[in-house]
């Protein structure tokens, strides 16, 4: 709707001659971000968590994996205690081996985030590729890809990850298992999440490829690869971004679930899920902090990513508001 009169006294926005920053801060997406306090808080929490985990080796007060600095005597210290043996201060307490919970959380979060992000990237790459192929080519390629997607989508991601993980574990020789475990995990989680990207991208690709700007490009003599890369891909990335955000939360949860089930990362590289698994053993005996703080971190992480994803979906697609 354009052209009609605009009431006087209010500004109309032109878009020429203004800096990129001004344009961004004036955009509808930025407006809706700034005007939803929950989302602003979620962004802040996520930023703090991600940065803290990223720089865990610099920030963490102790190195939980250095046997030399381990104080076995400090085991089961409750939060906010200063040990009378080592003089160390433990903000969030220690576990059975006297490892500082805060430090293990930072290192564990790092592993969780790394696995989650890599798995999501893998899923995006595979899903977008297959989706573009199926949506643009149609016919047989489409039928085959979509059948696989349908079947896979009807199986829960966690089951597929378990199966892939189980098979990979028995194929890889035991000597390599420990070092390969994290990559197997990324592969398994990524493979269990690609299908929804493929489905979404395929749908969007079919819509876009029937639009006339694609016909115009074909008349201009462009080949399918060039059309997909320069025309269609940029136009289908919006929904991909939204799903990727939500999928990141899912992948982090999935990783922790697998580690919790004892089939995830090796115990030498504990993730948040591993820490929760360990903490669960001490829940009944009253050492609640060993479980509580890793669990809280995990939930905060997943919740802030989900909040962002939820908001992003509404902001990109205002029709749904």
């Amino acid at each position: 709707m354009q052209g009609n009169q605009v009431l006087p006294g209010k500004t109309t926005s032109g878009s020429r001659g203004r800096s990129l920053l001004a344009k961004i801060s004036d955009s509808d997406v930025a407006y809706s971000w700034w005007h939803s306090p929950v989302v602003v808080i979620a962004t802040a929490v996520l930023l703090v968590l991600v940065l803290a985990c990223l720089f865990a080796p610099l920030i963490a007060p102790y190195d939980p994996f250095d046997p030399a600095s381990l104080q076995l005597m400090d085991g089961f210290s409750p939060p906010m205690t200063t040990s009378s043996f080592s003089g160390n201060h433990y903000l969030l307490g220690t576990d059975a081996q006297g490892r500082d919970i805060l430090s293990t959380i930072l290192h564990g979060g790092r592993v969780s985030l790394f696995v989650g992000a890599s798995a999501t990237l893998f899923a995006v790459a595979l899903g977008v590729g297959m989706g573009l192929l199926a949506g643009y080519r149609g016919g047989f390629a489409d039928a085959v890809v979509m059948r696989i997607v349908d079947v896979q989508l009807s199986f829960p991601a966690i089951l597929i990850a378990l199966l892939v993980f189980g098979v990979a574990r028995s194929v890889i020789p035991p000597s390599l298992q420990e070092s390969a475990a994290i990559w197997v995990l990324i592969f398994a989680i990524g493979l269990s999440n690609w299908a929804q990207f493929a489905r979404t991208v395929r749908g969007a690709t079919m819509v876009e490829s029937h639009k006339d700007y694609v016909a115009a490009a074909r008349i201009a003599g462009k080949g399918p690869v060039k059309i997909l890369a320069t025309h269609i891909l940029p136009n289908v990335m919006g929904p991909v971004l939204v799903i990727a955000t939500i999928s990141l939360a899912l992948a982090v949860i999935e990783e922790s679930t697998l580690s919790f089930l004892g089939v995830g990362v090796p115990p030498t590289q504990p993730s948040l899920g591993t820490l929760i698994r360990i903490g669960q053993q001490f829940l009944f005996s009253g050492e609640w902090w060993i479980l509580f703080f890793p669990a809280l971190t995990l939930v905060l992480l997943a919740l802030s990513v989900n909040l962002l994803g939820d908001w992003l979906r509404d902001a990109i697609n205002p029709r749904l508001r």
Binding site: A249, F260, I276, Q280, L283, L291, A295, L298, A302, N306
Partner: peptide, 22 residues
């Protein structure tokens, strides 16, 4: 519901056990 999808199933289970059983 948003908190619900952010809580891993195993944590919900542990939480319920802690509250109603322990």
């Amino acid at each position: 519901s948003l908190i619900g999808v952010s809580l891993p199933t195993f944590l919900i289970g542990i939480g319920l056990i802690q509250l109603f059983a322990v």
